[in-house]
Design a protein around this nucleic acid. Structure first.
Ligand SMILES: [Mn+2]
Ligand SMILES: [Mn+2]
Ligand SMILES: [Zn+2]
Ligand SMILES: [Zn+2]
Lengths: 150, 150
DNA sequence: AATACAAATGCAACATTATTGTATTTAGAA
DNA sequence: TTCTAAATACAATAATGTTGCATTTGTATT
């Protein structure tokens, strides 16, 4: 599931976005592309504990601005970050897909293969974007039974 | 729009939920019922600045547990609280409605008059609840034109 | 009306998440 | 190799949320 990319490709990505190739950035990219779920800020911070917290925040903000990753708040309000698979451009995201929050393993999945329902709102409301969340059991956790944690 | 309730009714509400009638609780109820939008935690805290922050958190948690209010994270991850209009019971909410986040005035509206679309997810995912957000302009702000803030 | 006690509040301390400013380091261009 | 803008590291501070405990208070009971 996880997008497979090597270090050269990550370097290319940075170059294309006019970002310097630095070790912290490459590590963040590598980590996020190695997973098929979003990465929570706490996770990121504990895994990359040798990188300064502020640097992490700035890397994440930069990547988000550049359209490399998008931020998702899970159902507890925790910030999660996931790679963009849509053709997101600088300051112009197209990540209107469903986010699935597993109640057992807490992972957040981007469900790209599902188009958002366009809804009609009450008069006066002018919606510009929709965000849809679902919570429940992810494939791994539903297999193992509701009791156990992934 | 805002639900009109007087102090006696708030006292009744507390009593029905086996909660003591205290000034902080009544003030929180009064504030939340006077609006037709959700109340952000920062707002609540600045308006009720004479009530201890911890007390506010505890009141909000209690009300949420009792099914009086529900928590909504807006698109910035800020906690907002709104009164429940569905028949929410203790530890059993039914607030599966759309939340509209106005990009101009930042208000969060509960759109109860709209039923959630039941979606089919990829194999393996077992959704238990859906949460739908929309962002854009609310009626007030769309009238005034996109530039101006409410 | 006074008593008694559980519940609620207030206060202090602490934890986590996030932001801002600035000095130092470094990637990449010249 | 040198130079510089960009990026990182470090320090300080803000915002948000939690925990423990002493004090106060609502309400049931006498
Ligand atoms: Mn996503
Ligand atoms: Mn709501
Ligand atoms: Zn799971
Ligand atoms: Zn508005």
């Amino acid at each position: 599931m996880a997008q497979v990319k090597n270090n050269y490709q990550f370097e290319d990505m940075l170059q294309k976005h006019n970002l310097k190739k630095t070790a912290p950035r490459l590590r963040v990219l590598s980590m996020m592309y190695s997973k098929n779920t979003a990465t929570s800020q706490p996770d990121l911070e504990s895994v990359m504990n040798d990188i300064d917290r502020v640097t992490l925040y700035r890397i994440l903000n930069t990547f988000e601005e550049k359209g490399i990753i998008h931020k998702v708040f899970d159902l507890n309000g925790t910030a999660n970050y996931a790679v963009c698979h849509s053709d997101c451009k600088e300051n112009h995201h197209h990540d209107e897909h469903l986010h699935f929050n597993c109640t057992a393993c807490k992972n957040v999945y981007c469900i790209n293969e599902l188009n958002m329902p366009r809804l009609t709102l009450p008069a006066g409301f002018e919606p510009q974007a929709f965000t849809l969340y679902a919570s429940g059991l992810c494939p791994k956790c539903s297999k193992k039974g509701a009791a156990r944690v992934n």
